[in-house]
């Protein structure tokens, strides 16, 4: 079986190994977590089996935060060194982070509906995640609408920094605004979790961590290849133009 992915040609050995292994590990952990979530973790007292979605919902939330933190660091690194790789890392991390944030936003309602009787509620944690999603959707739109590649990288870097600085402020403001997330007590760092639950929760975190790393291992080299492609296109266009161009004198 050959995994889909970037061309084999000039990948360094460790990258090829990572691109193969990370998805496998993530997949394996996902299966293990699924098993643990349904068969190993204790049944939650008040919410019953529906609560099991927590093992897919909460760790995604933690991981997306990590992804955006990576973008924050990569953005600073780009502005200081101007090396393309940091721009690609920042961009890829936002895409991975957006995927994870979307998972949080999609699994939330499936949990909320049976428990609270409504798909969406304006309570703190969900709103915070939604705002986070909007900020980084803005990042991706900003990139899409900026034509010049250098400008795109610089603007995105500033956005990556400013957006992340906003994250803790949004967190606190939304929590003061809305009172508490009824399930916060159980979710905060596994303090209120039973041992079996804690293990599966940890499994969920590891799953998403490897998922994130797998996505990055595939996306970043893809970004570099896109860059190479654009460079080749530009130089071949320049050569064609050189052959056609005639001197013009006013």
């Amino acid at each position: 079986m050959s995994l889909p992915g970037p061309a084999r040609a000039d990948r360094p050995g460790w990258l090829a190994a990572a691109q193969m292994l990370l998805p496998l590990i993530a997949g394996g952990m996902a299966i293990a977590t699924l098993y643990g979530a349904f068969f190993y973790a204790a049944r939650e007292k008040t919410m019953g089996d529906v609560q099991r979605i927590f093992y897919f919902h909460a760790p995604a939330g933690i991981m997306c935060f990590l992804a955006f933190f990576v973008t924050f660091l990569a953005s600073i690194a780009y502005l200081r060194t101007r090396r393309r790789i940091w721009d690609i890392v920042g961009h890829s991390s936002v895409e991975a982070g957006m995927l994870l944030t979307s998972i949080v936003l999609l699994t939330g309602p499936f949990w909320a509906r049976p428990v609270w009787g409504t798909w969406w509620t304006w309570e703190a944690r969900l709103v915070w995640t939604l705002v986070l999603w909007m900020i980084y959707a803005g990042y991706l739109l900003l990139r899409r609408y900026t034509d010049d590649p250098d400008q795109q990288a610089r603007f995105a870097a500033v956005m990556g920094i400013v957006g992340f600085l906003d994250v803790p402020i949004v967190y606190y403001s939304v929590h003061w605004w809305r009172g508490h997330h009824p399930l916060v007590l159980k979710v905060s760092g596994g303090g209120g979790l039973e041992p079996t639950m804690r293990i599966v929760f940890l499994g969920g975190i590891i799953t998403y961590l490897f998922l994130y790393m797998a996505l990055m291992a595939l996306r970043v080299p893809l970004g570099r290849m896109e860059d190479d492609l654009r460079r080749l296109e530009a130089s071949s266009r320049a050569r064609a133009r050189g052959r056609r161009d005639m001197a013009r004198v006013t």
Binding site: M134, G138, M159, D166, I169, V170
Partner: peptide
């Protein structure tokens, strides 16, 4: 961009 960042 403005409204999402200015939520707080």
């Amino acid at each position: 961009l403005l409204f999402s960042v200015s939520v707080p």
